[in-house]
């Protein structure tokens, strides 16, 4: 599996530090380790290929999600948080 910060092929607008903080907060809320959350978010984006090819998430969201600065990693993290409620 690829590290979240090593994934290629998408426009990452947020800096890595912001991603790290968001991952840690989510991990805390979900009672998971940051490593596991990061692994899941990376897999959402690349399905194990090392390249962000998830058109439905790594493309644009519904009229831009202002909470995520349009960074696909944050969009995927939002999705993972919602997934944990489903």
């Amino acid at each position: 599996m690829t590290e979240l910060t090593d994934i290629e092929g998408a426009d990452f607008t947020a800096d890595d530090e912001k991603i790290q903080t968001a991952v840690e907060e989510a991990a805390d809320d979900l009672g998971m380790t940051p490593e596991k959350v990061e692994e899941e978010v990376a897999y959402i984006l690349d399905s194990g290929t090392g390249r962000a090819n998830n058109e439905g998430v790594a493309g644009a969201a519904a009229a831009d999600n202002e909470d995520t600065d349009n960074d696909p990693r944050l969009e995927a993290l939002e999705m993972f948080k919602l997934r944990q409620e489903l």
Partner: peptide
């Protein structure tokens, strides 16, 4: 919005099917 969320989950599943 809901349609977009559905598409996000679906396209994530599809990514694994393609791999």
């Amino acid at each position: 919005k809901l349609l977009n969320k559905g598409f996000q989950f679906i396209s994530t599943d599809e990514g694994r099917h393609i791999t």
